[in-house]
Simulated assay, not measured.
Amino acid sequence: MLTRALIVVLAILNVGVALWWMLRGEPAPVPPAMPSGVARLQLLDTPPAAAPAAAPAARSAALDDVTPTPPTSAPPATAEVAPGAARPPAATAAAATPASIPAPTPPAAPATPVALRCISLGPFADRDTAMAAQGKAGALVQRSRLREVPKPGASSTYRVMMPAAASRDEAQAMVKRIAAAGISDYYIMGQGDDANAIALGQYRNREGAERRLAALSAAGFTARLVASGGAEGAQWWIDAALADTASAGTTRQRSGAAQQRSLECAGLR
Rank of each mutant, 00 (worst) to 15 (best):
R4S: 08
R4T: 11
L10K: 07
A11H: 07
V17P: 00
A18N: 05
L23E: 14
E26I: 02
A28L: 13
P32W: 09
S36F: 08
R40K: 06
D45K: 06
T46Y: 10
T46K: 06
P47F: 05
A50M: 10
A51Q: 06
A53I: 04
A53V: 10
A54M: 13
A54D: 13
P56D: 04
A57V: 15
R59G: 08
A62T: 10
L63P: 00
V66E: 08
T67I: 13
P68I: 00
P70D: 07
A74Y: 07
A74K: 03
A77Y: 03
T78F: 05
A79W: 09
G84F: 09
A85I: 01
A86G: 10
R87A: 10
A94D: 12
A96V: 04
P98S: 06
A103T: 05
P106N: 00
A109W: 04
T112Y: 04
P113G: 07
A115L: 08
I119K: 01
S120L: 02
G122S: 04
P123T: 03
F124W: 14
R127S: 11
A130Q: 00
A130H: 02
A132D: 15
A132G: 11
A132N: 12
K136T: 05
A137Y: 03
A139Q: 13
Q142N: 13
R143C: 09
R143W: 09
S144P: 04
R147M: 13
R147V: 15
E148P: 02
V149A: 06
P150W: 02
P152C: 00
S156M: 07
S156C: 06
S156Y: 05
Y158S: 01
M162E: 11
A165L: 06
S167D: 15
E170A: 15
Q172L: 10
G182Y: 05
S184G: 14
D185A: 10
D185M: 04
D185N: 14
I188W: 02
Q191N: 11
G192M: 03
N196R: 12
A197Y: 05
I198K: 00
A199L: 05
L200F: 02
R204M: 09
G208R: 13
G208H: 12
A209L: 07
E210H: 05
R211C: 00
L213E: 07
A214E: 14
A214N: 10
A215F: 00
A215M: 05
F221T: 08
T222P: 01
R224G: 06
L225M: 15
V226H: 08
G230S: 03
E232F: 05
A234T: 14
I238N: 01
I238S: 00
D239N: 15
A240H: 08
T245R: 14
S247T: 15
S247Y: 07
G249H: 11
G249S: 12
G249A: 15
T250C: 03
R254G: 02
S255D: 08
Q259Y: 08
Q260C: 04
R261M: 09
R261C: 01
R261W: 12
R261H: 12
L263F: 12
E264H: 08
G267S: 13
G267V: 08
